[in-house]
Design a protein around this nucleic acid. Structure first.
Length: 474
RNA sequence: GUCCCCGUCGUCUAGCCCGGCCUAGGACACCGCCCUUUCACGGCGAUAACACGGGUUCAAAUCCCGUCGGGGACGCCA
């Protein structure tokens, strides 16, 4: 797909819009690698808008909306509605009782000029509504085909909120997006399918102004594992949460593209952003809702973790260790290089980067009590063979001085095997638990040097011999 | 309640528009085997789906109708 990408800030809700939301949104888009061709500038730094369709904040476009509303009113395509909240509420209740459609009756449509003037003079607050013409409202949807709503099922939409006095209030979202989409020459309106029922109203607005109706594409909802709409309960809901968890943006983008879309060959699943912009097509988007699957996201993230540049991973990962490590730019070169090698060993064991400190506990942060408390470890340790293996191990460790290399450990284990006839998992598991506190993990010849080096660097890591001593209790 | 959208393996999907090539393809997860003196990674393999009922047709996952199920909208929120 090609085209221009304009960023517009929709901040017509006075109460809900705050600059920090705008900042967050922009930060999220940047992180995902989505860059726009046109968009708002930053008043704080004096950066001007970029593009010829500005301003890009709806709060800065109020004058445009007001002018267009006057035009609609003058042409009789919109009207003032003096109904109060209570009156509208009563209408709705009545409709519900009679099993009819819950739409506005349109009773202010036919107010006489005299009544209108009277109300205006009395300072009665009014909203502006669009007059829905009595003909079917149709639009073309790239993912669903032709969609049609009968006029009698569509309520006269509020365009501008009421306000007391002469000045009209703030226009509503459905109205201003339509205006902005038209004025900004948006050709494709792509959004969630919860907007489908807003669309006929927007089509009516395009028609009232005599503007061409754009293409629509309504994407299906993303559901949680319980088939409910994705929400806080399901874990991560905001882009920044995924970032904080240590997901790579390319993994998220790739996964999201796969939710509701399949490549033309029906097989390819991994795409870079660049490949996606070429391969993606709205026509191939599926209309049915999709359930968000963390397993598959994790698989993709592991895939991109393997491909990622080590220096980039180091920069991304360092922060997860908090005060267990010195600040990265203050850390000695020896520590940085040790960290890099540790990452190379550990990253294949995680789904996302925030799991790293937990995995790194086997290298630094070793704790005998925690290791013993683990239920599965305790089961392994309870076996007679495990006791024998550990006591033999301790004997070797006591007799040894200096650093323990993988070769030394290997020799010990071979001797234990020969002396006790204990082998395989029965031999390996107790040793691994005593050394790392875990039954699984990288090969010893990768792990041991990292442990010994970590201990030598004074990062709170305990060396191999001391681990054995503490564990067996000399 | 009214209107709208949706319904292929547990999950994401290919196929559906242009019926036969579909004894329904791929991926994730699960399970098994191999590799590993452990576990994971990796490699190999297996299980697993056209919501249901009618109709059209020589032939239907594909076209038509109905039923059921799920979701959304019904706001002077976005």
């Amino acid at each position: 797909m090609g085209g221009d990408f304009l960023l517009r800030i929709e901040d017509t809700d006075l109460d809900r819009s705050e600059t920090r939301y705008e900042k967050q949104l922009i930060e999220d888009l940047r992180w995902l690698g989505l860059d726009w061709d046109e968009g708002p500038g930053d008043p704080a730094t004096g950066t001007p808008d970029k593009g010829a369709h500005g301003p890009y904040r709806q709060s800065e476009r109020l004058g445009i909306y007001a002018e267009l509303t006057e035009r609609l009113l003058a042409e009789g395509k919109a009207y003032r509605c003096f109904c109060t909240q209570e009156e509208l509420e009563a209408e709705r209740e009545l409709a519900a009782k009679e099993h009819g459609p819950q739409i506005y009756s349109g009773r202010c449509r036919a107010l006489s000029q005299a009544t209108i003037d009277e109300n205006l003079a009395a300072g009665k607050p009014f909203a502006v509504r669009l007059k829905i013409e009595d003909r079917p409202l149709r639009f073309h949807d790239l993912v669903r085909g032709e969609v049609e709503f009968a006029a009698e099922t569509v309520s006269d939409p509020i365009l501008v909120r009421s306000a007391s006095g002469v000045s009209s209030g703030v226009p509503v979202y459905n109205y201003v997006v339509t205006i902005d989409d038209a004025l900004m020459e948006i050709t494709h309106v792509i959004r969630g399918d919860d907007h489908i029922s807003n669309t006929p109203k927007q089509v009516a607005i395009y028609e009232a102004f005599g503007w061409p109706v754009p293409e629509f594409a309504h994407l299906s909802t993303i559901l949680g594992a319980d088939r409910e709409r994705l929400s806080k309960r399901h874990g991560a809901t905001s882009i920044s949460t995924f970032r904080e968890m240590g997901y790579l943006p390319e993994a998220l983008v790739n996964y999201l593209a796969l939710l509701g879309w399949g490549a033309e060959d029906g097989k390819t699943e991994t795409f870079t952003l660049k490949e996606l912009t070429k391969a993606f097509s709205l026509e191939r988007v599926t209309p049915s809702p999709a359930i968000f699957d963390f397993d598959k996201l994790n698989w993709l993230n592991r895939h991109y973790l393997k491909l990622a540049d080590p220096a980039r991973l180091a920069a991304l990962s360092w922060g997860y260790f908090g005060d267990r490590l010195p600040a990265r730019d203050a850390a000695p070169e020896t520590v940085q290089s040790w960290f890099d090698r540790m990452l190379a060993v550990l990253v294949p064991y995680v789904d996302h980067l925030d799991q790293l400190p937990d995995k790194a506990a086997m290298i630094f942060g070793f704790d005998v009590e925690v290791a013993r408390a683990d239920e599965e470890n305790a089961t392994v340790l309870a076996a007679d063979s495990a006791r024998i293996v550990l006591s033999e191990l301790a004997t070797h460790a006591r007799a040894h001085s200096g650093q323990v290399t993988p070769e030394v450990l290997k020799a010990w284990m071979n001797e234990i095997k020969a002396a006790t006839k204990i082998k395989g998992a029965d031999l390996f598991h107790p040793v691994r638990i005593a050394l790392t506190g875990s039954q699984s993990g990288p090969m010893f010849d990768k792990l041991i040097p990292l442990i010994e080096e970590g201990a030598a660097l004074g990062l709170g890591a305990i060396g191999v011999r001391e681990r054995i001593e503490r564990f067996v209790g000399v």
